[in-house]
Write a protein that binds this DNA or RNA. Structure first.
Ligand SMILES: NC(=O)c1ccc[n+]([C@@H]2O[C@H](COP(=O)([O-])OP(=O)(O)OC[C@H]3O[C@@H](n4cnc5c(N)ncnc54)[C@H](O)[C@@H]3O)[C@@H](O)[C@H]2O)c1
Ligand SMILES: NC(=O)c1ccc[n+]([C@@H]2O[C@H](COP(=O)([O-])OP(=O)(O)OC[C@H]3O[C@@H](n4cnc5c(N)ncnc54)[C@H](O)[C@@H]3O)[C@@H](O)[C@H]2O)c1
Lengths: 209, 209
DNA sequence: TTCACAATGTGAAAATAATAACAAAAAAAA
DNA sequence: TTTTTTTTGTTATTATTTTCACATTGTGAA
């Protein structure tokens, strides 16, 4: 396997989520068209993705749920998990930490950071909140690789700079403000307004067509 | 203009955000490479997108910020705005309503819904919260076209069904549970875990290569 | 056994998206 | 004035992603 398409990576993560639910329901095998239906894509697409990761199902029985979860894990997860931090314990930061904390996963949120003294020193969902001034130290000590940015947008750039300086390897930016990072830091930006405007656009399309 | 690529729609929304910031700073013109830099893409890509929407800049002066904002609005916005509702006033729902309420936009959040009696009847950021039982009525009365789903994932399917039944035209699903809607309802699903796992994957890649 | 069916796996084609290459023209410099 | 530079606009090209089409094969029914 030389190189997986970006889109395939995203879908593998989604397949796994669906598969975990199946496993929970005691389902041992699943067909490509079942996975496809859950994800609103075609069965061929699923089979192609699985082909790319070299997984082979059983004819007429479909794919072994457990095996496939295992294999996807081998491909997309790091061997010893990855430590994650959230920067900015406001509404969104709290929502996220709350949401992730429950999940047992190879992605471990191990710290959060804020500038507000009321928040520093407390725990949210069991995760300690540190001062932004300690960020570099804590990131290095706790071997944090990925940072989720949920600070006010005016602080986006400087927060990204600090993260980079602290040696972070990947940033997920939920701020609507695009930031700049060196090439070796992987950056993913997501903007809720874009999603909402996209939905609105297609709604408008359908109405006027 | 016959048909705009999906990706172009997303980028137009993002260009506009960047342009609005420029306008605020008093910048009257902008070059394609400036827009490109903000969005981490190439200048050609920007020019191509603008070509697709039929906008023409001024040679050596770049694009007129105000005009371009205007044009993008004509393309992606509905004439009289679109009314939006948030379903599920939990952590994420509150974060979102808080975030959007400030913004003046053609997308107006006009209602929220919850099942919890403590929340029903109150206002959050000035937006009234109704009982989920009133949803169909309120959606029709207020002419709500788009619903943002932030209910617990176990309620995702039934909430989507209710929305569809109430005549909603587009759904933005922040629940990790994929839902099914009829073809004429536009559905966008976003899963934060996918984004985070994607970042983690590329971080791992870079480390092991 | 033979046939029909239901699934996987994959090469080839099509569709979609991004990039390269370059002409044109306005402005600045020489 | 002429040349150089800079930037847009667009065609052609390349790359990526998705879909089509179909060979293959295990299973169960006739
Ligand atoms: N709330 C949403 O649904 C939503 C949606 C999309 C995007 N966003 C974006 O996410 C970001 C956070 O949104 P929010 O609603 O949670 O805002 P918020 O104001 O509730 O939270 C911001 C938090 O960051 C902290 N902070 C401020 N400066 C800081 C700094 N320099 N370093 C570290 N922490 C700092 C604040 O103390 C606060 O706790 C914003 O940029 C917002 O635009 C929010
Ligand atoms: N919090 C996050 O950062 C985050 C991130 C990604 C996805 N999500 C997803 O978003 C959803 C909401 O997350 P949250 O953290 O806000 O959860 P939450 O439990 O804080 O909020 C859920 C809200 O929905 C209400 N609710 C319950 N049943 C309902 C129903 N049938 N109809 C209407 N309202 C109902 C509850 O009263 C509550 O107010 C979940 O599905 C979660 O998985 C959350």
């Amino acid at each position: 396997m030389k190189h997986l398409p970006h889109k395939t990576i995203e879908r593998l993560s989604q397949y796994r989520r669906a598969l975990l639910i199946c496993l929970n329901n005691g389902q041992m095998h699943i067909y490509s068209h079942e996975i496809a239906k859950i994800q609103h894509i075609t069965a061929v697409q699923v089979r192609r993705d699985l082909m790319l990761i070299g997984y082979t199902g059983t004819l007429r029985k479909g794919y072994n749920v457990k095996e496939l979860i295992e294999l996807i894990g081998q491909i997309i997860d790091s061997l010893d998990g990855i430590n994650v931090a959230i920067i900015g314990m406001g509404n969104l930061g709290r929502a996220l930490i709350n949401y992730f904390a429950g999940k047992r996963s190879h992605l471990k949120i191990v710290a959060s950071f804020d500038i507000n003294p009321d928040k520093i020193g407390n725990k949210m969902s069991g995760i300690p909140c540190f001062s932004i001034d300690e960020m570099e130290k804590v990131i290095r000590e706790k071997n944090i690789k990925v940072g989720i940015m949920t600070v006010p947008e005016d602080f986006a750039s400087q927060t990204a700079d600090k993260l980079v300086h602290a040696g972070i390897k990947g940033i997920l930016n939920y701020t609507p403000k695009p930031v700049y990072v060196p090439n070796e830091v992987y950056l993913e930006e997501y903007d809720m307004i874009t999603s909402l405007e996209k939905v609105a656009f297609y709604v408008k399309m359908q109405e006027t067509e």
